[in-house]
Simulated scan of single mutants.
Amino acid sequence: MIRVLIADDEPMIRAGVRAVLATDPDIDVVAEAADGRDAVELVRRHRPAVAVLDIRMPGVNGIDAAAEIRATVPDTSVIMLTTFGEDDYILEALGGGAAGFLIKSGEPEELVAGVRAVAEGAAYLSPKVAARVVAHLAATGAGALAGRRSAARRRVAELTAREGEVLALLGGGLSNGQIARRLHVVEGTVKAHVSSILARLGVDNRAAAAVVAHEAGIITPRPSPP
């Protein structure tokens, strides 16, 4: 079972997230929180595989809660729930180690896929979130969209052919194990490639590497469940 914590200050949103996750028999929501402080405490108590956090919550916000969870309970992966207009927060959360980003108004299947992906150690960016992050970077003085895409492609071109394959799969939301099976190699080899990719791209985590993959346009989609 994939044990999950939900944190959002709106009871209706929490109920909706719980209802969507309940459609997957392998997912068990073990706790709910209405603010970031309670989320951190409940993660410490229940040790879920995944914490699904709203970005804006009273007291301790989702970004600060995510950073504390990653620092104190590193086995718990964090997914951030965002709404339109929170792009700056998404970029901040990327640097804080969040593994997944989903839009509250997105398709329910994305929520289930995102929880499954990060529980398996993958990074998961909703396609809409990825597109917004890339566009937002271009609109905030970080380089025009075409320039960022060109720069990302140059960075990817400096990777080995195999590292490029791994990055494309990583950007599509696959875990190390899934990438290993897709490429017919052992998982340890994939881990070594991922470490090299992060170092050569100059990014801190898989989610940030996934953004580069989206910018470069090399995503290999995650396979649909049977």
Rank of each mutant, 00 (worst) to 15 (best):
V156L: 00
S196D: 09
A192S: 14
V190N: 05
T140M: 15
E110M: 09
S150N: 10
S196P: 07
L125E: 00
R155M: 14
R116G: 01
S175D: 08
E158H: 11
V190F: 08
L169S: 07
A151Q: 13
A168Y: 11
K128A: 14
L183K: 13
A123G: 05
H136M: 07
V190D: 08
R153P: 04
T189G: 05
G114M: 00
R148G: 09
G147T: 08
E110R: 15
G114E: 03
V190C: 10
S150W: 04
V118Y: 02
P108E: 02
R162M: 09
V133M: 02
A122K: 04
L145G: 07
A113I: 01
A146C: 00
A180R: 10
T140K: 06
E158K: 10
E163W: 14
G141Y: 07
L169M: 15
V112I: 13
V133A: 05
R153Y: 01
L174D: 04
E187G: 06
R148L: 14
P108Q: 01
G171K: 05
G141Q: 05
Q178H: 13
R155G: 00
A139G: 11
P108G: 03
A192K: 15
L159C: 06
G177R: 14
G177L: 10
G141M: 05
A157F: 12
G177M: 06
R154I: 10
Y124G: 00
A142E: 11
A135K: 14
A180D: 07
L137M: 15
E165Y: 07
A135S: 11
L167K: 01
L167N: 04
V166K: 03
V112L: 08
G141A: 07
A152W: 03
V156W: 02
G188R: 09
V185A: 09
V194P: 02
R155E: 06
E165N: 11
H193M: 08
G172Y: 12
L125W: 03
A135E: 12
E165M: 12
Q178G: 09
S150K: 10
G177T: 03
P108T: 00
S150M: 09
A138C: 11
E107W: 00
A122R: 04
A123K: 02
L167F: 09
L169P: 03
R132K: 14
S196C: 08
R116M: 06
E165R: 15
